[in-house]
Structures are given as structure tokens and as C-alpha cells.
């Protein structure tokens, strides 16, 4: 059957035409087209990768900033804390010092009082001695009569005398 018998002429022209078509298209069409396509794909892939990298860098930068901020905050807290501690210490020291001074003053006052008291007592003792001598003199002067009467008299004299 003619339909399934390849004609030599057509085979000849087909080989020549298709061959020429193939070489021209391969060199002047497919090569630049495929080259441009892969180049564009590479550019897109590169840009995407770059964007990804930039985003990662940005994130790293943000976290770094956060870290810095946190660090600063910590430092501030630390400084504040230290300052407060120092102030407290100073205050306590000052309070203690004041207390000490006050105590010292009280001590001095007590000592003073003691000294005064002793002096006063000595004076009283002296006065009492004198008084006793005075009373004894008066008793003796009033004649030594009854015991009871004498005692009453002593008491009376003692009441009359000013102890202070």
C-alpha cells in the first residue's frame, strides 16, 4: 500500500529540512532561550536566597538589640540596686553613729549625775553629821530626862531640821 511506503524524495527533503531546522533552532533559538530561562531562574533563586538571608540577619539584629536592651535594663537594675544598698548602708551607718553618740552622751550624763549625786550625798552626810551634833547639843542642853521624853524630843528635832 502506498500510504505506508515512505517516499524516498520526501525522506530526503525531510532529513535536509529537519536537520537544518534543528541546527538553526538549536543555535539561534533554543540556546539563547534556555540560557535566558535558566539565568532568570538563577536570578530569582538568588534573590530569594538573599532575601531569606537578609531576613535572618534582620532577625538576628533584632534579637541582638533585644539582648542589648535586656542587658542595659539589667545593668540599670543592678546600678539602682547597688545605689540603694549603698544608701541603706550609709543611712544605717549614720544611724548607728548617731545612736552611739547619743549613748555616749547619756553615759556622760549618767556619770555626771553619779558624780553630782555622790557630791550631794557627801554634802548630806556632812549636813547630817552637823545636824546630829546640833541635835545632840540641844538634847544635852535640855537635860537628860526620861528616855521616852528624850526620844520624842529627838524626833521633834529631826522633823524640824531641814534635811535638804
Amino acid at each position: 500500500m502506498e500510504l505506508v511506503k515512505p517516499a524516498i524524495g520526501l525522506v530526503f527533503w525531510m532529513v535536509i529540512t529537519f536537520g537544518a531546522l534543528f541546527f538553526i533552532l538549536a543555535k539561534f533559538a533554543w540556546k539563547p532561550i534556555l540560557g535566558m530561562l535558566s539565568e532568570r531562574e538563577k536570578t530569582i533563586a538568588d534573590s530569594l536566597a538573599e532575601a531569606q538571608k537578609a531576613r535572618a540577619e534582620m532577625a538576628a539584629l533584632t534579637s541582638k538589640n533585644q539582648d542589648l536592651l535586656n542587658q542595659a535594663k539589667e545593668e540599670r537594675n543592678k546600678i539602682l540596686h547597688e545605689a540603694k544598698e549603698a544608701a541603706d548602708k550609709l543611712k544605717n551607718e549614720m544611724l548607728a553613729k548617731a545612736q552611739q553618740e547619743v549613748e555616749a552622751k547619756i553615759q556622760t550624763a549618767f556619770r555626771e549625775i553619779d558624780i553630782q549625786k555622790k557630791a550631794a550625798i557627801t554634802e548630806v552626810k556632812n549636813s547630817v553629821g552637823l545636824l546630829a551634833l546640833d541635835i545632840a547639843e540641844k538634847v544635852i542642853r535640855k537635860d537628860l530626862k526620861g528616855n521616852a521624853e528624850q526620844l520624842e524630843y529627838v524626833n521633834k528635832l529631826a522633823k524640824e531640821s531641814n534635811l535638804n
Binding site: I8, L10, W13, L21, F28, A29
Partner: peptide
């Protein structure tokens, strides 16, 4: 041996020319 430019050969030339025009212009626009 018949090497005539028959209808199919002419059609072959035409489609080859069409392919060349189209794809060379496509390559040009790339």
C-alpha cells in the same frame, strides 16, 4: 528517483519557515 518538491515537501518547507520565524523572534524577545 523522485526528488520533487511535492505538496508534503512544500508543506515541510512552510512549517520549517514558520518555526524559524516564530522561534527566532521568540529568542529575539528573550
Amino acid at each position: 528517483i523522485d526528488f520533487s518538491i511535492t505538496k508534503n515537501v512544500a508543506s515541510l518547507f512552510f512549517s520549517a519557515a514558520l518555526l524559524l520565524i516564530i522561534f527566532l523572534s521568540v529568542a529575539g524577545s528573550y
